[in-house]
Design a protein around this nucleic acid. Sequence first.
RNA 1: GCGUCGGUGGCGGAGUGGUCAAUCGCACUUGGCUGUAAACCAAGCGCCUUCGGGCUACGGGGGUUCGAAUCCCUCCCGGCGCACCA
Length: 400
Amino acid sequence: MQVATDPKKIDELLTRGVAEVIPENALRAKLLSGERLRVKLGIDPTSPNLHLGRSVPLLKLRDFQELGHQIVFIVGDATGVIGDTSDKESERPMLTSETVEVNKKAYFEQVGKLIDLERAELRYNSEWLNALTYREIGEHADVFSVADFISRENIKKRLDAGKRVSLREVLYPLMQGYDSVAIKADVEIGGMDQKFNVLAGRPLQEHFGQPPQHVVLGPLVEGLDGRKMSSSWGNTINFLDEPFDMFGKVMSVRDELVPRYFKVFTRTPLDEVRSMALSLDSGEMHPKDAKMRLAREIVTMYHSKEDAEQAQEKFVATFAEGGVPEEIAVALVASGTPLIDALVASGVVSSKSEARRLIEGGAVSLPLAGNEKITDITTRVDRELTLRVGKKRFVRFEIA
RNA sequence: GCGUCGGUGGCGGAGUGGUCAAUCGCACUUGGCUGUAAACCAAGCGCCUUCGGGCUACGGGGGUUCGAAUCCCUCCCGGCGCACCA
């Protein structure tokens, strides 16, 4: 396959959704030369769901693929068990092999939404990592010094704070570095939080007589609550979210983030993104409209254009016009059941105390009757009833 | 292993015998304002309640006491120092 060397495309490849390239200029020259590169991206199967934060390096991988380079996607089934602490303020527990086994199967399917798996090389790193002997690991470890490791910011912070740092954590960068050796990577993609691990590949490759890989690091992107998007915060938009849900999540993102999301999470042409940002600044464009478009783009990427249209219609009907979603939770209750008990039984709220608080706080209303509020906690369910609890929760009670 | 300090709610962190379901900050939930945005204001934030109150909780277990998150014993877990010397 021919490798494209269009300078404009290469420029976007090296800047869009990219925070840092190491070493700085060498990669551009290499890309312009037309040499076909082996580009590596590894993801550990620590959770069964990929979220948009992960899509940043994946899209970058796709950019390389589209230029004609050979991409290598590695599921870190061996590294996942050890656990990476790069993005953590504390130790990450080791995963069980079973968890990893379950998760890794789900990965290729999700990744397939973004990249062409047919043309990619797909690997599990247990393939080579599980075969290493203690002697070999010792040899790899000798390439690095303890000072290298403990000078990492997050490790240093923990050490200074008197927190425990497990010796196991030292192993992780070695493993990831050896992945690069095993597949002879020319380029590795990762997030900024991966900087240390990704860089570990370079000296190791040199040790094995390979030229050190180039490194492309993506930015960390804010999640729904403004903190870094991460599974542990629960502020993610996931590849597998249902269209309507995904649409709604995008709509709840802060306005200021919209151009950034366009830039890193979509491949909407950059010129369009720029002009949109300008009209937003000038007040010509309403932020809500830009966000709607963003939501459509994202849903289209992970589902389809039709799903995106439908999600938007539903969204407008439900929230902008105060309607009720088509598919809502339905619970069967006996006639005369106290509302509080019915809410708990339906799973909409977790305890009677919570139900009482919500009712008393005016959070429960009848969306079919002009959003009239129910504030009497002794209300009973004696007929079919459609309720809204808070902004997002809906439930319909049917009489058994 | 020895010594020492510590283990409190999702997190951080108060509290050292009663007035502690536990100050406070963050996070979160709900209401208001809106565009399901942000910011801001207000309320809530263990469970049950006939709203009087009741029950279960401060690493686990046992004890002292009228009464313990607070004192004692023991076990578990973590930090730090030491482990007769590279």
